[in-house]
Design a protein around this nucleic acid. Structure first.
Lengths: 169, 169
DNA sequence: ATTTCCATGTAATATGTTACATGATTAT
DNA sequence: ATAATCATGTAACATATTACATGGAAAT
């Protein structure tokens, strides 16, 4: 299976959120709004918008100065399908998808949180198992202290994430 | 400035940690040990090892079955220099560097933690500022609930990370 | 006037994944 | 015997960054 593309959905989501955006405006969005959770450079954005237009996901409209893109019905379907795809172990994707959910009562919100909860509980268990395996005794901790630190850190990170997810589920 | 390469230092660090490794063994390491913090495929590993040998960072030794690499004095210097480079805002790099610090009393350990602390305090402040800016009133929260959620999540994440860093500094 | 920002595009380069290939050894 | 694992390598493809390039508009 080829690796999942994310960029087109990000662009689609941004265009959908704002109603209509130009390539330049999208590149500005990455410097501000979404910038904390995702990034793309203009040399990616412009060709991708052209492809999306070819695929009928967006329509363009030039006012003489800029070319603005808005989502088509086809594009809305594609976006929704992507949002509803099962989550993988990728916290960035989780954040990104949440970013595109505007309405608090959208059932997708609970669904995403529950999926992420599932994924992270498994990861938490896995990491705790790893810690027990790799550092059965204190000697091993002293011999690979850095590894010990980041493993314990990763476990705590998962624990906090799970707590937050449960609080918001 | 060209983007910093990380792969060669990962390979160098692994070879250094284990004393001697073959390309195949390194690819196995990524499936187990370091796998939680970094990954590389064999099609990256083999050419990179060849380049590192060209650069005099490693020496190779073939036992007829596998080619084993061990670090040279030059390689050790390169590795140390990399570890001592100022950290950037990249939690993965922080984890990776920690992974290569075996000794609890290595001064680099405190240094890395303090650098990461600095970076993350700034990020924490930045995110809190963003939250205040973007969601000044409750209406805005209702209008972009997903964004609100991930921003508050990101803030809590930083807070926990800072607490952990302070505990271990 | 000249710098900065708006606006778009392509080319060169770097990086990373998947696929294609091959041959030896070990386990079932 | 045959499937799985060991072991290494290259080719094709996808993705992403930096650099190169251009022209108009707005600001200093």
């Amino acid at each position: 299976m080829p690796k999942k593309r994310i960029l087109p959905y990000v662009l689609l989501g941004l265009i959908n959120n704002k109603g209509s955006l130009s390539g330049y405006q999208i590149s500005q969005e990455f410097k501000h709004e979404v910038g904390d959770f995702w990034h793309a450079s203009h040399s990616q954005i412009y060709p991708e918008l052209a492809r999306m237009k070819d695929d009928g996901w967006v329509e363009d409209n030039n006012d003489g100065k800029s070319t603005y893109y808005k989502i088509t019905d086809e594009g809305s379907k594609v976006m929704r399908t992507w949002l509803e795809e099962p989550l993988e172990d990728n916290e960035e994707l989780f954040s990104l998808k949440l970013y595109f959910i505007k309405d608090k009562s959208d059932p997708l919100l609970k669904s995403l949180i529950n999926q992420e909860l599932d994924i992270n509980k498994k990861k938490y268990d896995y990491l705790k198992k790893r810690l027990a395996e790799v550092f059965e005794d204190d000697n091993k901790i002293q011999d690979n202290y850095g590894h010990y630190l980041i493993l314990t850190r990763a476990i705590e990170r998962e624990k906090n994430h799970i707590l937050w997810l449960e609080k918001n589920s």
